[in-house]
């Protein structure tokens, strides 16, 4: 009797609740299944191809089984190193200015909104900007520096936003306490705020660099080499390749054996990406162990 009365008002409430839970669960499993399928597909094709020779040999136009990724991997590593060199100081500096110095006015809001919007701009657009600005106007040519500067444009908004987030997470009472002890603004930022924000910043930086590592479109746009025999030795003049470009080049090939090489290169790319993410987690853990609120 009481049961009937209670369910009278919303007879389908419990059913709707269960259906919704099932729907959400299905979505999650779809995601996982897709990911597993993708990884299985790549690893089953490419794993057999991964070897020391594969990593240390240059690619070949004619022999897929002799092809390696040395120039592409080398190019990618240089590219990420340079990108980090350009993007981290600029990104962290911008974040510190916006969070710690900029007065809270309309101008700041405008800049803030624009940075958030820039994070959503497709990377190919930055590629075209990089082609016009770095390759041509600044006459850097299709070089590692031009490529790294272009990738810097791509990931700068992400680095700024994540660094701001990390700075905002530092309790305000720490800044107040530091100022009350006669510390200058710079001393407060350097001795208190930055060490506390470092774990969060590092995570953001590494995730942004992972994104840069996987980018092909902006590099294609500035005209980076999809086929190259050597690791670049001069960052201002030499042509360069990158792993995503090598993969793109091989998957486009008519010879099916090159697709296997592409799968092998993807395995390497994924390994590097996962290692970078693992590093982010380890660093965050180690730094946050030192700083406990």
């Amino acid at each position: 009797m009481s049961l009937v009365q209670r369910s009278n008002g919303r007879p389908y409430a419990k059913l709707a609740s269960n259906l919704f839970a099932i729907f959400c669960g299905t979505c999650m499993w779809l995601c996982i299944a897709t990911l597993v399928l993708l990884l299985w597909n790549i690893f089953s094709h490419g794993w057999g191809r991964v070897s020391f020779d594969f990593i240390s040999s240059p690619p070949s136009i004619i022999f897929p089984e002799k092809s390696g990724i040395r120039p592409a991997l080398g190019g990618s590593i240089y590219l990420i190193g340079l990108t980090a060199l350009f993007s981290v100081p600029i990104g962290v500096g911008t974040a510190i200015y916006l969070e710690e110095y900029a007065p809270n006015n309309r101008w700041r809001t405008l800049v803030q909104t624009n940075i958030a919007n820039l994070a959503g701009v497709p990377s190919i657009v930055y590629g075209i900007l990089g082609l016009g600005l770095f390759v041509r106007a600044l006459n850097l040519g299709v070089s590692l520096v031009a490529g790294a500067l272009t990738l810097t444009l791509v990931i700068l908004p992400i680095i700024i936003l994540s660094a701001q987030e990390a700075l905002r997470a530092v309790p305000h009472s720490i800044r107040t306490a530091s100022h009350a002890l006669g510390a200058t603004r710079w001393q407060t930022i350097w001795h208190q705020v930055l060490p506390a924000a470092l774990p969060g910043m590092l995570t953001g930086v590494i995730l942004a660099l992972s994104r840069a590592l996987g980018e092909a479109a902006p590099l294609v746009a500035i005209g980076a080499a999809t086929y190259i025999r050597n690791v670049p030795s001069n960052m201002f003049t030499d042509e360069f390749g990158a792993l995503p470009l090598q993969i793109y080049n091989w998957t486009d090939h008519s010879d099916k054996d090159f697709h296997v090489a592409a799968a092998g290169a993807i395995v390497i790319l994924l390994t590097v990406l996962i290692s970078m993410n693992a590093l982010a987690i380890v660093l965050r853990y180690r730094f946050s162990k030192r700083i406990q609120w």
Binding site: S173, T176, A177, S178, A180, L181, A196, Q292, W293
Partner: peptide, 12 residues
């Protein structure tokens, strides 16, 4: 002129 706050705020 030193200051002590309502909520203790030691540095981490």
């Amino acid at each position: 002129v030193g200051m002590v706050f309502q909520k203790s705020n030691p540095f981490p």
